[in-house]
């Protein structure tokens, strides 16, 4: 493997110097934190709606964006998101596609036409 010493690199100019030092500081702080909190009970997290929000958001950003036309991906995401969280109110769920279409149209127009930004 080509080593940086060949280019005259000294220890104090090594690329690993700063990450190494920062890693060391993090290690020390981590040890202090662990020692200080050794008697503390483990952190109890309440997730509540988070798994559903994560599935919807990651599904949109990883599964849909870039694979299907942007307007369609946005319409589907916003509609499903609103419908899922407005359940069981039927009246509000029926409005979800309207919000989805409005968002899809507004964002596409705003980014492409007004702000001249490329869409995925």
């Amino acid at each position: 493997m080509d080593r940086l010493e060949r280019h005259g690199a000294a220890l104090y100019t090594a690329p690993g110097l700063v990450p190494g030092l920062l890693g060391l500081v993090l290690l020390v702080l981590g040890v202090v934190l662990a020692v200080r909190n050794r008697a503390a009970p483990s952190l109890r997290l309440r997730w509540e709606n988070t798994p559903l929000v994560l599935v919807l958001c990651l599904g949109y950003a990883i599964g849909l964006v870039g694979r299907v036309p942007f307007w369609l991906a946005t319409f589907v995401f916003v509609t499903v998101f609103i419908a899922a969280f407005e359940y069981p109110s039927r009246r509000r769920m029926t409005l979800a596609p309207v919000y989805g279409a409005a968002t899809s149209l507004a964002v596409t127009y705003l980014f492409e036409t007004v702000f001249l930004v490329r869409l995925p």
């Binding site: 998101f81 609103i82 969280f85 980014f111 490329r118």
Partner: peptide, 18 residues
């Protein structure tokens, strides 16, 4: 929030791409 959160997330995704 059920209505504005997905809209803001769309802006987060598009903004990061842009």
């Amino acid at each position: 929030y059920q209505i504005i959160v997905p809209v803001i997330f769309v802006l987060c995704a598009v903004g990061s791409f842009a």
